[in-house]
Structures are given as structure tokens and as C-alpha cells.
Computed example of a mutant assay.
Amino acid sequence: MQFLRCVAAALVVAQHAAIELRARTGTPDLLSYWHDHGGVGVDIFFVISGLVMYLSTRRKPAPADATATAALFFRRRLIRIVPMYWFYTLSKVAIVLVLGSKAFAAGLPFLYVLGSLCFYPMVSPASGDILPLVESGWTLGFEMLFYAVLATVIALGLPRLKTATLVLALIYLVAQLFPDAVLSQFFGRTVLFEFLLGMGIARLWMQYKQPPAWLAVLLVAIAMAALFVHRPPLDRFVGLGIPSAMLVLGMAWMERFAWVRAAAGRLTLLGDASYSTYLAHGFIMPAAVIGGLKLAPHSYGFICLTAVMVATVAGCLSYLLLEKPLTRVLNARFGGSKVVASASTAPV
């Protein structure tokens, strides 16, 4: 999973590097492959999130401890997500207010900043799209909704996958009834169900930890072909979500191979730093692309690769110097005990 988190972050950064190069050069079809395919990193992230959350909540708490366990789960998710997101959001606020911004020439509305900080979908005054101030943070709105649903399910002692499926399906259906509302336009997308794919493959992984070796290889091969070779014009859940789930499951099953474990182990830092890379790259990308265009004006592929590498280094530094120590301090103070004493071993 660490390897895939690293790959997912790199794909998103590559897509945004292509977008930045297009904007700087005025060439609409430049690096079209990465522009069209890099976004799958988000789908991989969502599937991994569903898998990890299912596995991390697999022990069912005693009824008397259900509410406390749910609160602890959600608190730890907040500690993991919020501080770094707020740091980069407030950093961008400071940059806009101090240095100015053409995108926010009319000002930076307070309610928009507040909505961004609270993961509440709002229309950006810069682009007109439903995006927070740190644009890559749009995915965190889906993450926080998923965490809230899962915490509620745990508190009520209900089956996780079945209940989460019902709740997310209800949210999606309600969104279709009110298509003009901003919340509906944001959450009424099938990408919402990719968390459920992650939960589903977690169950498969728990039940069949040692399938035939050829099956894992076949899953990865099919997924790679569907995601990066031939992508038919399908709904995102079908065209990207399902192949991403196949990729995640196949890679999880391939951990039986020593060479896979060894190769993935070398990328542990990059996987750990993927969240910081995801948030920080938007700050690094313009400077990296501008510098690349000055040094090698027409080497667009090289500029894109360099931008990804620079953003990855920045993400690692952000993780080591800020995210890791901050998360450790907050978990020590607010994260609670690691195990609920009365939790049983039965799956939730």
C-alpha cells in the first residue's frame, strides 16, 4: 500500500504538472497522456482509504464502548488530515493577502476560506468550479464524509460495509433529486462509491490471503491495461474505480513475493509522505515549471519529470519536518489508547 500511495501521489502531481505546462505555454494538447491519466491517482487513494479504514476498524467494540470507539476513530482521522490541510490552506491565504493573486483579484471571501477549512464544498471565486482554496484538497471533502459515515456506523454497532453502502447510496440518490445544489453537484458523483470498493477488497484480502499467485499478477496486468493503455469512455466508478480496486487487491496479494516486499520497502518514506506531497505540490509546481521552461524551454517531458521529483522532495521534507512530528504530538495528547480494552475480535 505504501508503494501504491507513492505512485498515486506521483500520478496526481504529473497531471498537475501537465496542466501547469499547458497554461504556461498556451499549448492545449501538451502532455495530453499525463493530463488525461494522472487523475487516476485520486481513485487509487480512495480505494486504499476504504481498505485501510475497513482493516483498522475490524474489531467490534462492546456495545458500551461503541460510542467512545467511534469518537476515537474520528478524532484520529482529524489528527491525520486536518493539521496539514489547515497549514497549507492558511499558507495560501497568507500568500494571497501578502503577495496578491490574479486569480483572487477581487479579494478572498471570508466565507470561502471558512468553507475550505471546514471541508464544505463551495464555488471558488477564482475558477468558478467547486474547489477549496488548496484545490487538490477537494478529495478531502469525500474523505471526511466517508470517515463521518464510518464513525456513525461504528457508534451504532451496525455492519460496516452494508450500512456504509446504504448510506452512501442514499446520499447519492438525494443528490440526484437536487442537481442544482452545490452540495449535490459535489457529492452526487459515483467516485463516492470507490471507498466501498476498498472496503470490499479488504474483506476479500482477509478471507483469501493466499490465492493462486497467477491471480494477483493477472489482476495487476488487467488493471494496468485498463487504467493506462486503453481507457474506454465510461463512468469514473466503472472506468477508473473498479480497475483501481483490482490494482490495489492484486498488489496486496503480491506482497507474498519477497522481491515485491523488498522493492516496496525502499519506498516507505515516499508512501508516508504522499499526503504532504499531495498538499504541497500545488505550491511548488508553478516555480518548478517556470524554472524548467527557462532552463530547457522545449523539453516538456523532462520538465514534467523534474517537477514531479521536486514536488516529491518537498513533500518528503514537509512530512519529516512538520507532518510527522506534529501528528506524533497530537496523537500523544489527543489520540487516546491504541486498543479499546473491551473490544472483541469479531469483525464489525
Rank of each mutant, 00 (worst) to 15 (best):
K162I: 15
V174M: 09
R231A: 15
L145M: 10
L295H: 02
S49N: 03
F119C: 03
G271C: 07
G265H: 07
H16F: 02
P212W: 07
G38F: 01
P347S: 13
A10G: 08
V313N: 06
A9L: 03
L108V: 06
A10E: 09
W205E: 11
A245N: 05
V13G: 06
L156R: 15
M144S: 04
M84H: 08
L322R: 00
P233K: 04
S49A: 14
S276R: 03
M206H: 14
P179R: 06
A66R: 10
V153G: 12
L90R: 00
T327S: 14
G38H: 09
F142V: 00
P179I: 09
A164K: 00
Y208W: 09
W253L: 06
K102V: 09
L192A: 11
H230D: 14
L4K: 02
V339W: 12
A263Y: 13
G41W: 00
A14G: 08
L161Y: 05
P83N: 11
G250H: 03
Y275L: 02
V153Q: 12
V248S: 06
F187Q: 08
G250E: 02
P61C: 00
Y172A: 11
V7A: 13
W259S: 14
G188E: 10
A216E: 05
L90M: 06
M144Y: 05
F193S: 07
V174C: 06
V182C: 05
Q207F: 12
G100N: 12
F228C: 07
V348W: 14
R189G: 11
S244L: 02
L166P: 01
H16I: 03
R58T: 15
V313H: 06
W138T: 08
T152V: 06
G265Y: 12
V310R: 04
A126E: 03
F334C: 04
F302G: 13
T69I: 13
R256W: 09
V308H: 08
E20N: 07
S136K: 11
G239F: 10
A202K: 05
L145Q: 09
F119K: 05
I79R: 10
F257Y: 15
I130W: 04
R76E: 10
V12T: 02
L234Y: 14
F186I: 04
R58C: 13
L161I: 05
L293V: 03
S127R: 01
G198M: 00
S299W: 13
R236N: 13
A202I: 05
A70W: 01
A106E: 05
Q15S: 10
A287G: 08
P179N: 04
A280E: 04
T139S: 15
L168G: 09
D36W: 03
C6M: 13
V329C: 15
